[in-house]
Amino acid sequence: MASLNVLDFEKSIAELDENLSKLHQIVEDRNNPQNKPDLAGQIAELEEHRTALLSALFANLTPWDKVLLARHVKRPYTLDYVGAIFEDWTELHGDRMFADDGAIVAGLAKLDGQPVAVIGHQKGRDLKQRQQRNFGSARPEGFRKAGRIMQMAAKFGIPVVTLIDTAAAAADIAADERGISEAIARSMFEMATLPVPIVSIIIGEGGSGGALGIAVADRVLMLEHAVYSVIPPEGCAAILWRDPERKSDAAAALNLTAQRALELCIIDDIVPEPLGGAHRDWAESAESVKAALLQSLRPLTGIPAPTLVAQRYEKFRRMGRFTELEGV
């Protein structure tokens, strides 16, 4: 059956999944006891086939496939991870100036017993949620709320964890009116000197300034199939070829995969996803993210604040590629 939740390249998997679930249903049907032995073999065979197919498919994903995976509507969002990873999650609302932005959630929680401030972009799954979350596109108030929570974390010596998942910052007139540019710039400016450890993980879409605005961290991680880009592939294609349909070419040109980001020294590590992508197993994904966060935070917690801030500065200071001519 065709579904909006199944990507094109996943269709063969979806068919297998459907057959598998039919077989499982027959097994569970106690009115058919004599069929059980035959089916167990079939199921095992199908599952093996499915694993092989998934491995083959996911070993050869194109950058555009990754964009689609990163945007997958079934992919776990920030609050899905928060619920699975942290204890005592207490959400805190509002920028104390204008509004509470639903596109960025923030609060305090415990990670393996250690208090942390958690900040992340939040997307919505249905129409109502999407409106409430502004499709995960943060407004100025979102960045200012994030800044407020980070300053509080600094005050109490609490590390900061940010989860990145946004197509882009809000680009409407109202966002511009309230200084979306200044809000993003200010957030990066403050993160650059925040005297507590910061770990960021891109869990889905890392959409340009809207993503980087809360990702100036000591350690930047990316989930295996997440993407991080200076411009959406559609926008890039529109500018380069005046044809937004050439988005897959643009996705390749932009080098937006976690693997390329690691090679370019933009991120520190890639966090593995369950076979077939994070959306196939939320629990396993959350476990993977939690382990990565703990592993990244642990070595940072002992570092004195001035050293930490100096190292963070050097980390971003080094980013970029250019040459210096001699004799000019």
């Binding site: 300034g209 980087l212 100036v216 080098n255 933009i266 200071r317 970029g320």
Partner: peptide, 15 residues
């Protein structure tokens, strides 16, 4: 310059 350009936003803000 893809992400390398994006990171200049962080670099210049930190400076």
């Amino acid at each position: 310059e893809g992400l390398l350009s994006l990171m200049q936003m962080a670099k210049t803000s930190a400076a």
